[in-house]
Design a protein around this nucleic acid. Structure first.
Length: 251
DNA sequence: CGCCTTTGACCGGCGC
DNA sequence: GCGCCGGTCAAAGGCG
């Protein structure tokens, strides 16, 4: 499951890179005067910092409705600006559907975590738990777990940093986590601009073979459909393509 | 005994 | 400078 998650993350990262490249080209286009549109300024720097979000659900494979198939598109100006300004908060969010009566704040992801603090924050009545990776003493990864303010049956785990060691136990991931009920149900990309969330529980995929060609195909289809549902993306695409066509009229 | 959670204290950044 | 707030520390106690 972790491997699959990694694959999906890579897939999405690649896709998002393409997406942000296209966006950047679009904004570069728009920021130049019509006369200058023939040449794109090479001095513009692009930054495609991605904040990935991967969702999980419990073994009942319930839809996490508040998080499924969600496409958030802030004003394109905003996201464009932030894409260029943001430093590099390398973090990842994971949504885990749990029983609301379960107050353990434990997210099974296969790694060993040591809790080092808990706080009640202002924006959310539920306490936030702080964890450190205890598998390797030097591992800088931290994790914050807090119930979603919107849906108290959903745990939101925020990972910071990257593990500087291998996975403690692939078997644990492959079987333990699943047994304990953490099955991916949605995947989303967020780069402080648009958030694209893919619901993997559709077509009942979460409970089936995630490596099957059918799954891969449906995943790509769903990603593509999420992208094309984003009006900013389609607008950027249309403009970029039409710009190219006008730039190179048929002979 | 080692590792874990709990929990109040402490610290540093930030806004006023 | 002060208070608020999020994040971290560390002592105490539990558990296998």
């Amino acid at each position: 499951m972790t491997e699959e998650n990694k694959k999906l993350s890579e897939l999405l990262s690649a896709m998002y890179t393409n997406y942000s490249t296209l966006r950047s080209q679009f904004f570069d286009f728009m920021s130049t005067s019509p006369k200058e549109r023939g040449s794109i300024s090479p001095s513009r720097k692009r930054k495609s910092e991605s904040l990935e979000t991967v969702g999980f659900t419990d073994k009942t494979y319930e839809r996490t409705d508040s998080f499924s198939n969600r496409v958030e598109s802030p004003s394109s100006e905003d996201s464009c600006k932030r894409l260029r300004e943001d430093p590099k908060p390398r973090s990842m969010k994971v949504y885990v559907k749990t029983d609301p009566s379960d107050s353990s704040l434990v997210v099974k992801d296969g790694f060993q975590w040591r809790k080092y603090g808990q706080k009640v924050t202002r924006d959310n009545p539920s306490p936030r738990a702080y964890f450190r990776c205890s598998f390797a003493p030097s591992c800088p990864v931290k994790k914050k777990v807090q119930r979603s303010a919107e849906d108290r049956s959903v745990l939101v785990a925020t990972y910071e940093g990257e593990h500087n060691h291998g996975h403690p136990s692939q078997n644990e991931v492959a079987h333990g986590s699943c047994r304990n009920g953490s099955v991916p149900c949605s995947v989303s990309i967020n780069s402080s601009g648009p958030t694209i969330t893919l619901d993997l529980t559709k077509q009942g995929l979460a409970s089936r073979d995630m490596e099957s060609p059918e799954f891969q195909r449906l995943l790509v289809e769903q990603m593509a459909s999420s992208l094309t549902k984003d009006p900013n993306f389609t607008a950027a695409l249309v403009t970029a393509i039409s710009g190219r066509i006008l730039q190179h009229p048929p002979a």
